[in-house]
Write a protein that binds this DNA or RNA. Structure first.
Lengths: 341, 341
DNA sequence: CTGAAAGCGCTTACAG
DNA sequence: CTGAAAGCGCTTACAG
């Protein structure tokens, strides 16, 4: 497995210093003369030295492991987050450990305990819905495990997080539709208990009213983020409000369902009706026409979250770290000027 | 992080034996008296002992790490494989490391080298398309890294693999459609260079001929496994062969595309036309009507693959391990008796 | 069948 | 600013 097992001692010998000094340089500790530091770095580079993670873990207090605890979420989303964390870890000699925590009740404690025992992570990234699982947060806090949440539903004073402004994003999409001349727009909302879904709904109606459109002309239907619920919601909506010229769904899957219903009713997209989603899922990209949607920089958000963990920034600050990321309005083929124009 | 850092020495003291004996028991080594073994096991259990992975790795020759090298494949598939490997690892104190290898050319060597240096895995699970990436296989073989491939396109004499009989699965689906009275069935095949796609096509036409149906009545169109290609293929097919009553696509995404085209043409599914897919993707389940498809036991296949790695079965045998898994025909709402019946 | 000694490759105190 | 010693918790030879 190891071709040339170069150790820290080899580097020390090569650089003409003690092992301890090499260790200092590698860990960016202070109190090393610059010339010494350079000599060590040069020696390490020449030898192609790579620190042994197991040895560092055993001797020290870090494991160089970052966990991603996730529940039952969109699988593409989970994988995207994994990729972002992985990128950050890879660059810093850390390793990503994805850990599904599907039992939200009793089982999660035993499972988490076993996970932490075989893999004592230096920190965890949390994604919804685990970002808002109070017993889990308490469990981690009790063990002093650093946490960064991605897009938590509720803001918690003590937990670092990265997020986008969901409401502003919904407003941007609504404005996009309005600027295309749409005046009667249906909205398909997500699950009631989903915080982001709430904010999206809020943003939609806020912009509708702000633009002087009539609220009654813009029906709302409730979905559950799944494709089928979007199809059903759109179908009912087109039945009761046949004059709507656009539908905005709170996620891509429901938008895809809405598209299906439009097709079934003989409507063309976007000629007869514009359809917009939210989340920039691969599904929305694969659709035909491709879905206009909102894109979160999931990768960059996940990278930022894990970098806080890796750099120890989290441990250093008193006030909880928090960073807002910009969303992106992806205008694709599923939205076009209103047929009423 | 550690609440009660119970060590092997603690267990030894409690059981009244030497640390070496505890080590023997934990590693299932021979030459331990049964009473001794039981005493050690009891002591370990009472103390809630968990071996320290870092220490075992540093002292021994195992890392307790299993890698999943994957390329650009269906993301749901990747995640399902991860889950299967994770389950097996979790039960045996191993850890899963997913490693995306997206650069199939020069870059993969450097990347893989860095990966193996920070994470010297005890073995890797390969999924398509990496299962058939010769330079990668050579690289791994040169370093004596145990490999298990899941559904490789080509069977390689020296590499262990798990798979399903793709051709038989296609035959089963074809027979399902024929038994519903369909006599004119279109087939949408996958990418030319995809081995499994070939086998599915082969199975389809073999069963068509075997059942006495006319080959000319069963058009074939080429897709690329993406939704849009299925939509285009189906659209052309319905143009040139308006009398077909069923479409069988070589994967779910293309079947979803075909469904879209059917809707756009005012056809009902399954009343006017039956549509079948392959792979049991979440997309196919979400569709409305839900897609009849072929399900591979991806989870079990991934578990089996990683267990070979974990148990060391791979190192012990001379002849390459190989196991065929049974597929499942999932009859859902998208297929029904032919309208010609 | 069992154990005492040495060592894996680092970091932690501690000393200077 | 730098280093010598001890130790992290296991497994590897080796001995008996």
């Amino acid at each position: 497995m190891h071709r040339t097992p170069i150790t820290l001692d080899d580097v020390a010998a090569r650089a003409g210093v003690s092992p301890k000094t090499v260790s200092r340089v590698l860990n960016n500790e202070p109190n090393v003369r610059n010339t010494t530091r350079d000599a060590v770095l040069a020696a390490a580079l020449e030898l192609g030295y790579r620190p042994n993670r197991a040895a560092r873990t055993l001797a020290g207090s870090r494991s160089f492991l970052i966990g991603h605890l996730h529940g039952r979420a969109d699988r593409d989303y989970i994988l995207s987050v994994n990729e972002g964390i992985h990128t950050a870890c890879f660059q810093h000699g850390y390793v990503l450990l994805p850990e599904p925590l599907l039992d939200y009740n009793e089982g999660f404690v035993r499972r988490l305990q076993q996970f932490l025992q075989t893999a004592p992570v230096d920190g965890v990234v949390l994604t919804p819905p685990l970002t808002d699982h109070d017993p889990l947060l308490a469990f981690l806090a009790a063990r002093n495990i650093p946490i960064v949440s991605i897009s938590p539903e509720k803001v918690r004073k003590s937990i670092a997080s990265v997020y986008i402004d969901e409401k502003e994003a919904a407003i941007a999409m609504t404005q996009h539709l309005i600027s295309l001349g749409h005046k009667k727009i249906g909205f398909i909302s997500g699950p009631k208990d989903h915080g982001a879904s709430h904010l999206r709904t809020e943003g939609f109606y806020e912009q509708i009213l702000k633009s002087g459109l009539k609220r009654e002309a813009c029906p709302q239907a409730q979905g559950d983020f799944k494709l089928k619920s979007g199809a059903i919601a759109a179908n009912e909506m087109l039945e009761t409000h046949p004059d709507i010229t656009a539908i905005f769904a709170a996620n891509d899957a429901m938008a895809a369902g809405a598209m299906t219903s439009a097709f079934k009713r003989g409507l063309s997209v976007p000629e007869d009706i514009s359809i917009a989603g939210f989340d920039a899922s691969p599904l929305g990209e694969a659709l035909w026409p491709a879905l206009t949607t909102i894109k979160q920089p999931v990768n960059r958000m996940a990278m930022a979250a894990s970098l806080w963990l890796i750099s120890g920034a989290l441990a250093r600050t008193e006030q909880p770290l928090r960073e807002r990321f910009d969303f992106e309005l992806l205008v694709r083929a599923s939205t076009a000027p209103s047929r009423e124009n």
